[in-house]
Amino acid sequence: MTVGTSYQMINGLSEVIEQYDAVILDLWGVVHDGVTPYPSSILAMEALKKAGVPVALLSNAPRRSSVVVARMEDMGIARDLYGPAVASGEIAYSQLLARTDPWYAKLGRKVMSVGPVRDMSMFEGQDVEMVKTVEDADWLLVTGPNDDYDAVSVYEDLLHAAKARDLPMLCPNPDREVIRGGDRIICAGAIAARYEVLGGNVRWEGKPLASAYDFCLQLFDKGPDAKLLVVGDSLSTDVAGSNNAGLDVALVTGGIHAEELGAPRGTLPEKGKLDALLNATGRSITYAVGDFCW
């Protein structure tokens, strides 16, 4: 693992891929923007397949993995371009179904959900009763804002009411924000982080937690000696998680950090700006690349 600001700036994965046995890809900000794939991403996945490099997906998406796969297919990203696809929602879903973890075992049946309809797959086959008020709930599931363009402040009264009852909250997406179709919007993590500030009990699932990588690697079994490369765009999730797991990571600088780095997708930032951001966040990267490209 490269330490500090000692990293390599590259123009594409083809420059370094011979060093690796497999790749773990983030989705939002790397492969697509939640609406359409980035112009170079499908070509890069096709090139990885042609080069014989297995690919797994690990995404902080608060829904079942099958929903993520279906959405990728709708975008024109063929299923044969990658192997295991793990959404953070699937990790939470598995825990909810099993309820063997002590935190999950204590949850009651009555759940109030905060988030869009597209995340309802989290309740498939679950022994829960969905309720509409904090007063009726045993716990909260937050998968995102009810409306994509809500601010965190919209949920302030709800969060205070939940804290007054000490309701536990499950957040299967630690991301604070994402770029969707060119617009910056909040994610579940922003709401859950505010609840934590208020003293609320939050259970997080997804990157950067080690459990997310463990879940993915169990499905993507390349053996203990395999050399893996993670490709992601977020320092707080993709890079932090890779650092914790001891994996090499290529930061797509044209993703969530493009604006603060002053370098649009497909271009590399000034090294000084990237060094300053890495020092400020305490993160380490192996490579910087302007886009997920070959």
Rank of each mutant, 00 (worst) to 15 (best):
M1V: 13
M1W: 02
T2R: 14
G4K: 13
T5I: 12
I10A: 06
N11W: 01
N11P: 00
G12A: 09
S14T: 12
E15C: 05
Y20V: 11
A22S: 13
A22I: 10
A22Y: 04
V23H: 09
I24M: 13
L27C: 15
G34N: 11
Y38Q: 06
A47G: 09
A51T: 02
G52K: 07
V53P: 00
S65F: 04
V67N: 08
V69L: 11
V69I: 15
A70N: 11
E73M: 12
A78I: 00
A78S: 15
A85P: 00
E90A: 12
A92N: 10
Y93D: 01
Y93I: 00
Q95H: 13
L96Y: 04
R99T: 04
D101R: 11
K106M: 12
R109D: 13
V111G: 05
P116D: 12
M120N: 12
M120Y: 08
M122Y: 01
M122W: 01
E124G: 00
Q126M: 13
Q126K: 01
Q126L: 15
K132F: 09
K132E: 15
A137Q: 04
A137E: 04
G144H: 07
V152M: 08
S153F: 07
Y155E: 08
D157T: 14
H160K: 14
A164G: 07
D166G: 00
L167R: 05
P168F: 07
D175S: 06
V178L: 14
D183H: 14
I186L: 13
I186A: 07
G189P: 03
A190M: 05
A190F: 03
W204M: 03
G206R: 04
K207D: 09
L209M: 10
L209C: 00
A210R: 14
S211V: 10
Y213V: 02
F215R: 06
F215A: 14
L217F: 06
Q218G: 12
D221C: 02
D221F: 00
K222L: 15
K222W: 05
A226F: 03
K227S: 15
G232H: 04
G232V: 06
T237E: 11
A240I: 01
A245Q: 15
A245M: 15
G246W: 07
G246Y: 07
D248N: 13
V249K: 07
L251S: 06
V252H: 03
G255T: 05
E259H: 12
L261V: 06
L261F: 02
P264F: 05
G266F: 01
T267D: 09
K271A: 13
D275Y: 02
D275G: 08
D275P: 03
A276D: 13
N279M: 12
T286I: 04
V289K: 01
F292D: 07
